[in-house]
Simulated assay, not measured.
Amino acid sequence: MGLFNKRNEAAEQLSALQAELRQVYERLDAADAAKADLARRLEDLTTTVTTPPAEPAPALVDERRLGDVEQRLSAQLDALSASVDDQRTHLADLALVAGDTARKTDDIAQLAEKMAAIDGRVDRVSVELTNQLTEMGNELDELHRRSTELEIGVLEQRLDDVTSGQERLANEQARYEIQFREDLAEIAERFRRPTVR
């Protein structure tokens, strides 16, 4: 979100620089007009001073005063020329700053788009990982449940085996007991009967 604020700030700065650039252009145009006016006035004065009168006229203007005015106008023209040059330099600097600001604004916009794309990818990967972890957890629960069922089943099978083994042993024992009793009864019967020799 900070990137978008910076982009808005950069756009506002760019607008402010453009407005200042327009003002500088206006001042530069005004300075050029003033310079042209001073140059015209200087030319008029130079023409007046250098053009000899058609007929000798009485000196209306003192030449010393005229030289002073010419010097002042020349100094003002030089100062105005320097000011115009400074304004042009400042204008060029402002144009560079405006260009840099526009490039930075574009760079920030591209960076914001890349960040949004990365954020989207991170979200998708996070969702995918969450889904995979959930599936793995479910599979582990199922394996645990099955292993518990298998253990119970194995234990029941072994218990059945032991129980059936006990039943077999009990049956065998009963059969041996019956056989033993029959054998004992037969032996007792033989002892009771007299033997014929």
Score class of each variant (00 low, 15 high):
residue 154 V to T: 12
residue 150 L to C: 10
residue 158 R to Q: 09
residue 134 T to C: 05
residue 153 G to M: 05
residue 129 L to Y: 00
residue 136 M to T: 11
residue 153 G to K: 12
residue 150 L to K: 01
residue 151 E to G: 12
residue 151 E to K: 06
residue 143 L to V: 11
residue 140 L to H: 04
residue 134 T to I: 11
residue 145 R to P: 12
residue 134 T to R: 13
residue 146 R to L: 13
residue 138 N to W: 05
residue 150 L to F: 05
residue 127 V to G: 00
residue 153 G to S: 10
residue 148 T to V: 13
residue 130 T to F: 02
residue 135 E to G: 04
residue 156 E to G: 08
residue 154 V to R: 11
residue 133 L to C: 07
residue 153 G to Q: 09
residue 132 Q to N: 08
residue 147 S to F: 08
residue 158 R to A: 07
residue 144 H to C: 11
residue 131 N to A: 09
residue 142 E to M: 07
residue 152 I to H: 07
residue 143 L to R: 04
residue 129 L to E: 01
residue 148 T to N: 13
residue 148 T to M: 06
residue 157 Q to N: 14
residue 149 E to H: 10
residue 157 Q to C: 10
residue 152 I to N: 03
residue 131 N to W: 02
residue 153 G to Y: 09
residue 159 L to A: 07
residue 140 L to G: 03
residue 150 L to N: 09
residue 154 V to Y: 02
residue 127 V to C: 00
residue 130 T to Y: 02
residue 142 E to Y: 10
residue 145 R to W: 05
residue 129 L to V: 04
residue 132 Q to S: 13
residue 144 H to E: 14
residue 130 T to I: 02
residue 131 N to I: 01
residue 128 E to L: 01
residue 139 E to S: 13
residue 139 E to Q: 12
residue 128 E to H: 07
residue 131 N to G: 01
residue 138 N to S: 12
residue 136 M to G: 03
residue 157 Q to A: 14
residue 146 R to P: 08
residue 142 E to I: 11
residue 127 V to M: 01
residue 137 G to P: 05
residue 131 N to H: 03
residue 157 Q to G: 10
residue 148 T to I: 07
residue 129 L to D: 08
residue 157 Q to R: 11
residue 130 T to W: 00
residue 140 L to D: 09
residue 157 Q to W: 11
residue 147 S to V: 10
residue 134 T to E: 00
residue 153 G to D: 06
residue 134 T to V: 03
residue 127 V to I: 03
residue 131 N to F: 00
residue 157 Q to M: 04
residue 154 V to W: 05
residue 141 D to S: 04
residue 144 H to S: 13
residue 131 N to C: 02
residue 140 L to E: 07
residue 138 N to V: 14
residue 132 Q to T: 15
residue 145 R to N: 14
